[in-house]
Amino acid sequence: RLRTTITPEQLEILYQKYLLDSNPTRKMLDHIAHEVGLKKRVVQVWFQNTRARERK
């Protein structure tokens, strides 16, 4: 499986959303995924990875 490439514009939106809520609901994940044009699962994993990186 190929990795999904996230553009700088998408990253900017994801980080803005992360600052508002680091643990979004399913509904919010759907909305964010639609807004940035990525699959919900990709957005979900991005949030998981970002939370894990923050803990280190």
Results as ranks from 00 to 15, higher is better:
Q44G: 11
K40L: 14
T4I: 12
F47L: 03
R53N: 13
N23W: 08
E54W: 04
N49F: 03
A52I: 03
T7V: 02
V43P: 02
R41L: 11
P8H: 10
E35S: 07
K40T: 15
T25D: 13
E9I: 07
T4Y: 07
L2S: 15
E35L: 08
D30L: 04
T5C: 09
L20R: 06
E9V: 07
V42A: 09
P8D: 09
P8N: 10
H34Y: 11
D21Q: 07
R1D: 06
P24R: 01
R55N: 15
A52N: 12
A33M: 01
R26F: 12
R41F: 08
K39G: 13
T7N: 05
I13Q: 09
I13L: 09
R1C: 14
T50C: 10
L2K: 12
K17P: 00
H34M: 09
T7A: 12
R3P: 09
T7F: 01
Q16I: 10
T5K: 03
Q10D: 14
I13R: 09
P8T: 09
Q44N: 11
K27G: 12
I32Q: 02
L20A: 07
L29F: 12
W46L: 02
T25M: 07
D30Q: 13
K27L: 09
E54L: 08
L19I: 03
L38F: 01
E35Y: 03
R55Q: 14
F47Y: 05
V42G: 04
P24T: 00
P8M: 15
K56Q: 12
L29S: 04
N49R: 06
N23V: 05
L19Q: 07
A52E: 14
L11T: 09
R41Y: 09
I6R: 01
E54F: 08
Y18H: 00
L11H: 11
I13V: 12
G37H: 05
V36Q: 00
L2Y: 14
F47R: 02
E12H: 10
R53S: 13
T50A: 12
V42P: 00
Q10I: 06
L19C: 10
V43F: 01
Q16E: 05
W46E: 00
L11R: 12
K17R: 13
L2W: 09
Q48I: 02
G37Y: 00
V42W: 10
K56P: 07
V45I: 13
T4R: 03
L29I: 13
W46G: 01
T5D: 12
V42Q: 05
E9M: 06
A52T: 04
K56D: 04
K56W: 06
S22A: 11
T7D: 09
G37S: 06
M28T: 09
V43R: 00
E12C: 09
D21P: 03
R53C: 12
M28V: 09
N23H: 05
E35A: 09
I6Q: 02
V45T: 07
V36S: 09
L20S: 10
L20N: 06
Y15N: 09
R1M: 14
H31D: 15
A33K: 01
V45F: 10
K56A: 12
V43C: 05
Q44S: 10
V36Y: 01
E9P: 06
H34C: 10
L11K: 08
V43W: 00
A33F: 00
Y18I: 03
K56C: 09
Q44M: 08
S22M: 07
I6T: 07
T50E: 15
L14G: 00
R26D: 15
K40I: 12
E54C: 06
R53T: 12
L11C: 03
N23D: 05
G37A: 05
D21Y: 02
T50M: 12
H34L: 07
R55C: 14
Q10H: 05
D30C: 04
A33V: 04
L38P: 02
G37T: 01
K39N: 08
L29E: 08
Q44D: 15
D30M: 06
G37N: 06
K27M: 08
R55W: 11
K39Y: 09
L19V: 09
R53Q: 10
P8Q: 05
V36C: 11
S22I: 03
V42S: 06
R53P: 06
R26I: 15
I32V: 10
K17I: 03
E54V: 05
T50K: 09
E35N: 00
S22T: 06
L19F: 05
Q10A: 07
I32F: 09
R55Y: 13
K40Y: 13
N49A: 08
Y15L: 11
R53Y: 06
H31N: 14
S22Q: 12
Q48L: 06
K27S: 11
D21L: 03
R26W: 15
I13Y: 11
Q16L: 15
G37R: 06
E35T: 12
T5E: 15
T25N: 08
L38D: 00
T5G: 11
K27P: 13
T50Q: 14
L29R: 03
I13E: 05
W46T: 01
N49W: 02
R3Q: 15
T4H: 05
L29N: 02
I32P: 00
F47G: 02
K27H: 06
K17L: 06
R1T: 15
Q16M: 14
H31Q: 13
Y18P: 01
Q48R: 08
A33C: 09
Q48M: 05
R41G: 15
V43M: 01
R53H: 07
I13H: 12
R55K: 15
K39P: 14
K17H: 12
K40Q: 13
E54D: 11
H34D: 12
N23L: 05
L38K: 02
V42R: 04
R26A: 15
K27F: 06
H31S: 14
Q48P: 03
E54Y: 04
L14T: 00
Q48V: 08
W46D: 01
E12D: 09
L2G: 13
L19E: 07
L19G: 08
R55S: 15
K40D: 11
L2V: 13
T25C: 08
G37V: 01
P8R: 14
Q44F: 05
L2C: 04
T7H: 05
P8W: 13
R1W: 09
Q44C: 08
L29V: 10
T4G: 11
L19P: 03
E35V: 07
T5A: 13
K27A: 11
S22V: 05
R26K: 13
D21E: 11
I6V: 11
E12A: 10
K39E: 15
T4K: 06
D21A: 03
Q10L: 03
D21V: 05
L38V: 08
T25H: 04
T50N: 03
K56H: 08
Y18G: 01
Y15C: 05
E9T: 07
L14P: 01
H31R: 07
E54P: 05
L29Y: 12
V36L: 08
G37L: 01
R41S: 15
E35D: 10
R1N: 15
E12S: 09
S22K: 08
R55H: 11
L29K: 02
A33Y: 01
K39Q: 13
K56E: 15
Y18F: 14
I6D: 04
R26H: 15
K17V: 04
V36R: 01
Q44V: 08
L14R: 01
L20C: 11
I6K: 05
N23A: 07
K39M: 13
L11W: 09
E54I: 08
V43Y: 01
I13K: 09
T7R: 04
V45C: 06
P24Y: 03
L20E: 10
L29D: 01
L20G: 10
F47C: 00
P24H: 02
L38R: 01
L14Y: 00
T5I: 08
Y18D: 00
H31Y: 11
V43H: 00
E9R: 06
G37I: 01
F47V: 00
E54N: 03
S22W: 04
W46M: 00
K17W: 10
K40N: 14
R41K: 14
E12K: 03
E54A: 04
L11V: 11
